[in-house]
Design a binder for these strands. Structure first.
Length: 594
RNA sequence: GGAGCGGUAGUUCAGUUGGUCAGAACGCCGGCCUGUCACGCCGGAGGUCGCGGGUUCGAGCCCCGUCCGCUCCGCCA
């Protein structure tokens, strides 16, 4: 039907006759000559129609935006002075001698323009039109190149692509499950997988050694710019490996990916940082290393002052007092500081103390601050020294429970980095390692896995595990972070029944529950389970970063809205009584019915 | 569950203190135009101001409720 893609046309096809199929991107009618920019997935090319070709000219005259055309014509150089350097095909044009209207089109509800952006709701409602836009075409093509590169690398390293079930069972821990009622077993439900975690471990036990899958996962939790109810994981697992092997595979894969797709070299090896150090220095377990700001611990300096706001947390084992020095921050206005105060308030901070360093040579006189008067001169001097403050700087403080301080100053650090234009260019991957095994939840009064209950602890045996303070226990888990985005995480797994039972025990999952929910896993562990470990990546986030987009919706063909609906298909929708009856389901109440 | 921002023409938006405030640009339709490329020029059509209620002589504007979109907190092993 066609000989080339529109976007392919260049001087290489000079003087040859080409046949193109595409959409009318734009039509410029000069009365005596008509230009049509014809668009397909590869790009744009300008087609010229002259009145001498009567039939073609008449058809071009009729054509409107988004009409689908098949055009035949000869490729020629553009006349002197009319070359368009913004277009790949801009040195040439196609002289249209035959046109066929393959289909007409209604006027689109929004312009498929780079220049003006339609609201996201309109774009989602007419997603098939939105996806025609060159920007979206490029994003989804980028996504395809990403998965292609990943597959090639992993397959070269001997990984097998094996599918796992979409209909599985609900898990007691973790995110809320999407449920699917069983028709053949009324009253019972499948769950859609939150990840193939247990299946990939079973594949290791089954001897497949090296597995990977690019697989859809489902979590029924509230949405964010980087969270959708269905999303795609690059999931990997290998047997007879330790954390070094998994991290090695990962780095090779990412390095090749960025080289092939973006022409960029990533650091070799990726730097590593412990979870504790990440929180100490950056207030985040996914620090953006492009931002040259760090938190500094000052609890010891203010532990003795009368100022309860500081001395309280400084003497609380779960508290933290930290400073964040902002070079040149003295120029921040009162309004800006107020806005930052409001920002950290969202994370539970009760305020945002600061010191403006006007002239440190003058001692306390050279400082401008609402809190200096509550501190000792010794404390202030110590703070200035430790933060390395210079003239014109500003120092922010966080004093509260450690979690609040980290969240507040960690977020503040990122915002300051962007607002003050301090973000360094480039790609800064890193590994976060030495995660705690558990996290204590004060509300529920119990431990939760920081990763998941199958993560191996750094403990020799179950007895050693029970001897330790659970909150001090480290796991054999690792996260890979890129420019402040958590790209993926994984761990070496437990491959021993007794150890798995011991971890369940610490999580408050008793023998009976463990058997009921994970009996098949505990059983499988007893039939010769090899040591194994793996990692899973958020593919959408990876592509989002590489595409320079600020939401994963921009790199998904048909994403959901924040309330988890599809504006195009209007899913979820009600179903008929007959369908419900077949499933043995009666609705408690029909809310939101029309 | 909570906080914030937004909803006015097909689209993106403006609309002051409640009183010619139903507006602009783009798009669309018609006409003109032989080198444009976000073509240009002339003319035209196009509105349930998200929805419901209230205050008022009078509401796009104020109040209450509600729906939708986005950002964030909680949540996301």
């Amino acid at each position: 039907m066609r000989s080339h893609y529109c976007g392919e046309i260049s001087e290489r096809q000079l003087d040859s006759e080409v046949t193109l199929c595409g959409w009318v991107h734009r039509r410029r009618d000069h009365g005596g000559v008509i230009f049509i920019d014809l668009r397909d997935r590869a790009g744009l090319v300008q087609v010229v129609f002259n009145p001498e070709d009567e039939a073609a000219f008449a058809t071009a005259d009729r054509a409107r935006g988004e009409y689908v055309l098949r055009v035949t014509g000869r490729v020629r150089h553009r006349p002197e002075g009319t070359v368009n350097p913004d277009l790949h095909s801009g040195a040439v044009e196609v002289v249209g001698t035959a046109v066929e209207v393959l289909n007409t089109a209604q006027t689109p509800p929004f312009q498929l323009e780079e220049h003006e952006h339609a609201g996201e709701d309109v774009r989602l409602r007419y997603r098939y039109l939105d996806l025609r836009r060159p920007e979206m075409q490029q994003r989804l093509q980028l996504r395809a190149r990403v998965t292609s590169s990943i597959r090639r690398q992993l397959e070269e390293e001997g990984f097998l692509d094996i599918e796992t079930p979409m209909l599985t069972r609900a898990t007691p821990e973790g995110a809320r499950d999407y449920l699917v009622p069983s028709r053949t077993h009324p009253g019972r439900f499948f769950a859609l997988p939150q990840s193939p975690q247990l299946f990939k471990q079973l594949l290791m036990m089954a001897g497949f050694d090296r597995y990977y899958q690019i697989v859809r996962c489902f979590r029924d939790e509230d949405l964010r710019a980087d969270r959708q109810p269905e999303f795609t994981q690059l999931d990997m697992e290998a047997a007879f490996v330790d954390e070094e092997a998994v991290m090695g595979v990962t780095e090779r894969m990412l390095r090749r990916l960025f080289r092939e797709v973006l022409g960029t070299e990533l650091a070799e090896p990726f730097p590593r940082i412990s979870h504790a150090e990440a929180l100490d220095r950056f207030g985040s377990d996914k620090p953006d290393l492009r931002i040259p700001l760090e938190l500094v611990e000052v609890a010891d300096l203010v532990a003795g002052v009368d100022f309860k706001v500081f001395s309280g947390p400084a003497n609380d084992p779960r508290g933290r007092v930290a400073a964040l020095r902002v070079p040149g921050g003295g120029a921040l206005t009162r309004k800006q500081i107020d806005d930052y105060t409001e920002l950290v308030g969202r994370y539970g901070a009760k305020g945002l103390a600061y010191i403006k360093v006007n002239d440190p040579g003058q001692g306390l006189e050279g400082l401008q601050s609402p809190i200096v008067k509550f501190l000792t001169e010794e404390a202030v001097t110590g703070i200035l020294e430790r933060t390395g403050a210079e003239v014109g700087d500003l120092i922010f403080f966080g004093a509260d429970k450690a979690g609040v301080v980290n969240a507040a100053l960690g977020t503040l650090r990122v915002h300051l980095g962007h607002d003050l234009d301090m973000v360094e260019p480039g790609w800064r991957p890193l590994w976060v390692v030495d995660f705690p095994m558990f996290e204590y939840d004060e509300q529920d009064g119990r431990l939760y896995s920081l990763h998941h209950p199958f993560t191996a602890p750094r403990a020799a045996d179950p007895a050693a595990l029970r001897d330790e303070d659970p909150e001090a226990l480290l796991s054999r888990a690792y996260d890979v972070v890129l420019n402040g985005v958590e790209l993926g995480g994984g761990s070496v797994r437990i491959h021993d029944t007794a150890m798995q039972q011991a971890v369940f025990g610490l999580l408050g999952i008793d023998e009976e529950q463990a058997q009921a929910k994970f009996g098949f896993l505990l059983e499988a562990l007893q039939y010769g389970c090899p040591p194994h470990g793996g990692i899973a990546f958020g593919l959408d986030r990876l592509v989002m970063l590489m595409a320079g987009a600020d939401s994963i919706r921009e790199v998904m063909a048909f994403p959901k809205t924040q309330t988890a609906t599809c504006l195009l298909t209007e899913a979820p929708a009600e179903v008929g009584e007959a369908q419900l009856q077949e499933l043995g389901i009666r609705l408690r109440r029909v809310s939101g019915a029309q």
